[in-house]
């Protein structure tokens, strides 16, 4: 009788810990491009660095090292959240005839691909981003890249409207010389860096 009384609470305590432990879970996934940056998980004074695909943390478990989480568990726990992911943004690059507003013939196909992508999406936004090479001052290049982006935005206005893209969903941005496609020294003219990128998202 005494033994049974002792065992019963012990058994229920074990059942509790098995069914109702902390459910918190963080898992780093392999990126589409193979890149894994990682996540730092701070919990109650301890810090775990998850920097590999399928490295996980279970806050509240007391573990001091990352744990490996199976793709199966990720799918079981996160299937619905993963199924709700938006289509990733897609970027198209256009080049221009030197000094003009006219795109080079090779960029025509990019433009067509961009317009086709718009047709495949719901609730589309379009971001037109201008880039320069490193000739001139960086503030001049900020201005130039924004002007070029606005000019392309204006050229595309009717085409995008015909595709059902609302005007408040189209924006123009100038990145100046911050994002060189080809790394060059300062004050280097390079037509590959003078471009406009159109992101559809």
């Amino acid at each position: 009788m005494t033994r049974l009384r002792l065992i019963a609470p012990l058994a229920s305590a074990l059942a509790l810990s098995a069914c109702c432990g902390p459910k918190d879970l963080i898992v780093v996934l392999p990126g589409a491009d193979g890149h894994v940056g990682g996540v730092i998980v701070e919990t109650g004074g301890s810090k775990l660095v998850l920097d590999k695909a399928y490295a996980g943390a279970r806050p509240g478990s007391g573990a001091s090292e990352p744990v490996d989480v199976s793709a199966y568990e990720v799918e079981r726990v996160f299937a619905k959240a993963l199924a709700a992911r938006p289509i990733p943004p897609k970027t198209y690059t256009l080049y221009f005839v030197s000094g003009g507003d006219e795109i080079v013939p090779e960029s025509r196909a990019e433009l067509d691909a961009m317009l086709a992508e718009i047709g495949d999406r719901k609730a589309v936004e379009v971001v037109v981003t201008g880039h320069t090479d490193t000739m001139g001052s960086s503030s001049d290049n900020d201005r130039l890249s924004l002007e070029r982006a606005r000019s392309v935005e204006a050229q595309l206005k009717d085409t995008l409207a015909a595709k059902g893209v609302q005007s408040d969903s189209v924006t123009a941005v100038g990145r100046g010389e911050r994002e060189l496609l080809v790394k060059t020294a300062d004050q280097t003219a390079d037509p590959r860096n003078r471009r406009v990128e159109i992101t559809v998202r």
Partner: peptide
């Protein structure tokens, strides 16, 4: 409720109870 995540990138999942 249990943790603070600092993000270096890129894709990950989180469950919070």
């Amino acid at each position: 409720p249990a943790a603070l995540l600092g993000v270096r990138g890129t894709e990950f999942v989180v469950r919070a109870d």
